[in-house]
Amino acid sequence: MSRALAVSGRRPRTLPAGETLSAEDYRRLIGVLESVDHADDLPEFRQALALALQSWFGFTGVAVLHGDTFVDAVRAGCGIQAGYLPEFLDEYAAHWATRDPFRSEPAARLLAEQGVVRLAELDSDSEFVRDFLRPHGIRDKAALLVDGGAAGVLYVGMAACDTDRVPDRDMAALRALRRHLTPLVIEQLGRDRERRAAQSTWQLTPREWEVADLAARGLTNRQIAQRLFIGVDTVKKHLSRALAATSCTSRTQLAVRFAAA
């Protein structure tokens, strides 16, 4: 009897000695990637990524922000958050945002070099940690950065409440995840940039565009404020500017305009 295959009895390749990630870790990576790889646009991608990181990695709070640069993303960028209470976000914006170690130049340098950084690598005993994070039950944080070059930057901040230190194994898994997320992030950031450029006649700032887009999706002013880390009054100001720039008199008209964008 003739054979169909040149080599018989082939076995799956074994993992090399000292392999950092387990089969369970790779399943987590696949779980996150499967959650985001069919997202139709950047808002859907951000939401799916935040929820997947909560589900597959157990992070309590997740923020997904983006901008042209790291500074734009963490200080004035667009994005969403999941898992945080409004009171926490209000206190952060009012008193602690400027003292957040993840918004610092050292954080920017480390993230550019390593891609994923843990709070302990920046400042684990600062006033920000002792007087703000710990009283709110946050025991450690990690951040992930994808630099898409001309397409922009995506920053992901993750809060852990059940451990004093995000495990090394989770950090290794996040670094692997970042590598696989990068082409998806670049594609989504590029498509979003093209979409906004197509409506450049509206002359909206990135923040005004973000507010208008969320309003067009049916979110209330309070929900938009919670997602974007800004006050309700600020949402109203941006939305009024967006309505005027797009010649819309209602959220319904705005939704129609954005659906056609």
Rank of each mutant, 00 (worst) to 15 (best):
S126H: 03
S240C: 01
V232A: 11
Q199C: 08
L144Q: 09
R99H: 13
Q81K: 06
R175F: 07
V74E: 09
P106G: 02
R169N: 08
L243K: 06
S250I: 12
L254F: 01
K141E: 15
A108G: 04
R241H: 07
A73T: 11
T220H: 07
F258R: 02
L254G: 05
M171Y: 01
S200F: 00
V64P: 06
R217V: 01
R257M: 00
M171C: 03
R13K: 12
E113P: 03
E127P: 00
E24N: 13
R75P: 07
R109H: 11
I186L: 02
A159K: 01
A4V: 07
D147I: 03
L33S: 04
V71K: 08
R191E: 12
G31V: 01
T163I: 05
S35H: 00
D41A: 11
G58Q: 14
V62N: 05
S55M: 14
L85Y: 05
L21N: 07
F128T: 12
D100M: 10
T98I: 12
E187Y: 14
V32Y: 02
P106S: 08
Y84K: 03
G148Y: 06
F258G: 00
E44R: 05
G115Q: 13
R251L: 11
G83C: 03
P16G: 09
P101C: 11
A4W: 05
R169M: 05
C248N: 05
A6T: 13
F70Q: 11
L122C: 07
G58F: 15
P167Y: 08
A93E: 12
V74Y: 00
F45E: 10
R10L: 11
A259I: 02
Q81L: 07
D90S: 02
E127V: 11
N221Y: 10
C161D: 10
D168P: 02
D170E: 09
W209L: 00
V7G: 14
F132W: 13
V153E: 04
E19I: 00
R251C: 09
R193W: 02
R10E: 07
F70C: 13
Q226Y: 02
A172Y: 04
E194Q: 06
R46T: 13
A255E: 04
A172I: 04
L204T: 00
C78A: 15
A107T: 08
F57V: 10
A6Q: 10
F59C: 06
H66A: 14
P43V: 15
M1W: 01
L204M: 04
Y92E: 07
S2P: 14
D90I: 01
Q188Y: 05
I230G: 00
D140T: 04
A63R: 12
Q81R: 10
E187F: 14
Y155E: 12
G83L: 08
T20K: 09
L239R: 02
Y155D: 15
L174E: 06
G148W: 13
E34R: 06
S200N: 02
T249Y: 05
A215S: 14
A245M: 00
A197G: 06
S104R: 06
G157M: 12
A120P: 00
A48M: 04
A4G: 13
V235K: 03
A82I: 09
V74S: 01
V74P: 07
R46M: 15
R134S: 10
T234A: 09
A107I: 09
P43I: 06
N221W: 04
L53C: 15
S8W: 08
V156E: 04
L144S: 07
R103P: 15
C161N: 08
A198M: 03
W96P: 03
A52H: 04
A107R: 08
D68K: 05
